[in-house]
Design a protein around this nucleic acid. Sequence first.
DNA 1: TGTTAGCACTCCTAAACCTCGAGTGCTAAA
DNA 2: TTTAGCACTCGAGGTTTAGGAGTGCTAACA
Lengths: 340, 340
Amino acid sequence: MLTDRQIQVLQVIIDEFIHTAQPIGSRAIAKKEQISFSPATIRNEMADLEDLGFIEKTHTSSGRVPSERGYRFYVDHLLSPFLLSNQEMSVIAQTFEKEIIEFEKVVQKSARVLSDMTNYTSIILGPEVFKTTLKQIQIISLSDQAAVAILVTNTGHVEHRYFTVPSTMQASDLEKLVNILNKRLAGVPIIQLQEKLYGEVAQLLQKYSNDFETTYTYLKAALLEKKPVKLYMDGKTNILLQPEFNDIEKIQSLYSVMEKEDKMANILRSTSKGIKVSIGQENELDEMQDCSLITASYTLGGEQMGTVALLGPKRMEYSRVISLLNVLSTRLSKTFNTWY
Amino acid sequence: MLTDRQIQVLQVIIDEFIHTAQPIGSRAIAKKEQISFSPATIRNEMADLEDLGFIEKTHTSSGRVPSERGYRFYVDHLLSPFLLSNQEMSVIAQTFEKEIIEFEKVVQKSARVLSDMTNYTSIILGPEVFKTTLKQIQIISLSDQAAVAILVTNTGHVEHRYFTVPSTMQASDLEKLVNILNKRLAGVPIIQLQEKLYGEVAQLLQKYSNDFETTYTYLKAALLEKKPVKLYMDGKTNILLQPEFNDIEKIQSLYSVMEKEDKMANILRSTSKGIKVSIGQENELDEMQDCSLITASYTLGGEQMGTVALLGPKRMEYSRVISLLNVLSTRLSKTFNTWY
DNA sequence: TGTTAGCACTCCTAAACCTCGAGTGCTAAA
DNA sequence: TTTAGCACTCGAGGTTTAGGAGTGCTAACA
């Protein structure tokens, strides 16, 4: 469909535009080493490329700028694998080398590394709790009316929920309750918790006192309450460095959408395995139409647990970013799998 | 020092500028109801006010704008208590009315309410953990090499720390350890934890096995590791609405300082009891020299536990913001004290 | 037939230039 | 002491201009 020469020209335009953010003219292209034909020829090719929708002019007599279609073609066909430098690799390695047994910290650090290395905004979706299983429940009473239930999952994730307790409920009863719950629920996938809590456990508890029953009701409600998935972002201000975001309105709209963590989480969650690139209008959210979002998933035992992503201008360093995300998501998976 | 008339003029200038963000001219002032003298007179007074440093010109023939000294005088002497509307009060009430026993949620909601009602950025410093006492410790082993210690404080705050365990350590031993710790540490102020852990508890544990010793070393390290204080911010994008922040550079520098949570936490922590107003250059951080920061502390049992703050342009609605912060911090204190 | 030099043309950018009006300070009269 | 009057200042915003980067087209060339 595209001639070799057209592809060559397109490649130069996009490569160049990614670095300069300026429209590229025929003369500039001709000066490139790999190009061996004259500006006039290039102008002809560019006219064709424009007709085909791969590049655009910003005004009648301007140089060319990649269109979204152009970026798409570039991402699909023109990317050569980017070799990260030793220095870069060692920075990443450092993130994982320390003896940390806390996944949250590793994720936080990863987010930091990603945004620092790219000058884009990094977003990491924490491990999906509902794919883990329950390890243990603990209940600690805080006063004669309140207690906190603490859940620990097989991935070492700790979560706590507060609930009310009838003041007549004994401490020993609470203990009994905990024992029953642990016996019945240990090893149960979090996603099946609801069913279990309403099913066999409820039945089992019926023979106990009234207090028991009301406590259980509160506890159940607390346990089933969905916690929003954790979203780790870093380098939000990096967007301000991009020349395409020199407009307060754009920043405003992008920032306001980034504040809606549930929306962002949904987008990251709905990605398939591996790397995915969304360019401009391909993004679900209108507010992200001037951006590209590149996502990579990390896994536990082959199952997708979370997502690592970078958000930047459409003019992203696709090749480099993809390599980085690849490395980081694999390392995250690896650490995750070693631990659990 | 200032004549009544000068004060009148100053008040009008600041009140007006707070709402319009535009320099105020003598004619505009003369039109105000409470003003009964001519523009020419006002011009004379303004010249004096400028000499005294309370107002400034943006250029030779412009209207006047309050100086930081002017704001300071305004805040110290010209503020009349702002009466919040019934509607506003009921919005605040709603934040506290629901049966939530989770302090974190109340704080989050408060931050949201504050930023929504003011269009400024709200910052709340969570309760200081080191002022609470330890309620209970639990240890849950995750694998044969890792375990998680869970601390619950008297304020219901739950925290967890991961640590490594020698693989030869028995589950029953861990239980024994927990029992000893609970017996010795329940009720101990978190701030004294270190001392206790190194002192009597260490001694007590010496008679046990080698494994015990190493486990304890890891655990101790994990427990003493300082967690950063939680900072809740909301309405970060509100700053973009302020006309004084129409400059990407300013936004950039302000946002980057907001991302440094530890710095912000320090500033909020170091405030004294009650309301404090920092205007422009009075702020510690250079990046905040175009802002005003108003802070109010909330307490538990008379002791300062955390801080509620609003960050906006120097041209803040001081009166209203102060009232709001007063109401919110008292309500936070009240809820906090009822619970614990 | 594909490539290239030449050239007229377009349109943006940045600077220079106006114009208008809001606001001032000063002076002199009330 | 207050105020009206007036000349003066300066910025905001619009218009003009010059320069240059880049294009498309045509015609010559390999």
